Simulated scan of single mutants.
Amino acid sequence: MRDEEQEELARKAAGGDRGALEKLLAAIQPSVLRRCARFLPCYQDAEEACQDVLMQVARNIGGFEGRSKFSTWLHVIIANGSRQTYRTLKRRAAEQGYAEMPIDVADARTTSVIAGSRLDLLDALEKLETSKADLVAPMVLRDICQLDYREIAVHLGIPEGTVKSRIHQARGQVREYLLAGM
């Protein structure tokens, strides 16, 4: 589906068109799953996050005002949903007595480094969020969701220079957390 068609479906769905919402959800599901998988180390976790994101889109589409592109709005929901799924999984692991989140990885020779790096990054983002929450969203939107600075500025309602500054600060903090091993 072309971006223009997706934007039109989003506008109709935001206006209350249930048919447009169903078409939109079906169209974005594969992309949402791929993007959730960028955050989370296990495919099953990405699937769980994807379902949560689709539910959030369905519940909150009425709040989509069209100030930014639908894809930008969706990226924010994906980032927040994936990070929330990670927090939930981490909490469940702690409740079950694990010191760290267990990871089921198909091929440990190739995937474990990637999965471990993602978990380290998510932990660093969580730590950053507790100390400097305003730095997390710009970095996630730029480095993980791969939005351009202008899109991030429009979505967050802050100047582009502030976006760049916050991303720079966030990267420095995350780098420190990762190098220190948290």
Rank of each mutant, 00 (worst) to 15 (best):
M1S: 15
R2L: 05
E5Y: 09
E7W: 12
A10L: 08
R11T: 12
R11M: 12
K12C: 09
A14T: 03
G15L: 13
G16K: 03
A26S: 09
R35K: 11
C36R: 11
L40E: 08
D45R: 12
D45V: 01
A49H: 06
C50R: 12
V53E: 04
V53M: 02
F64W: 15
R67H: 13
K69G: 13
K69A: 15
W73Y: 15
N80R: 14
N80P: 00
R83F: 02
Q84P: 00
T85P: 00
K90H: 09
A94L: 15
Q96T: 01
G97K: 11
G97N: 02
Y98N: 14
Y98S: 11
E100Q: 03
E100L: 08
R109A: 15
A115G: 15
A115K: 14
L121P: 04
S131A: 15
K132E: 14
L135Q: 13
A137C: 01
P138Y: 11
L141E: 06
L141S: 09
L141G: 05
D148I: 00
E151H: 12
A153S: 15
L156N: 01
P159Y: 10
E160H: 04
G161C: 04
S165C: 06
Q169P: 01
Q169T: 05
R171H: 07
R171F: 00
R175C: 01
Y177D: 02
L179E: 06
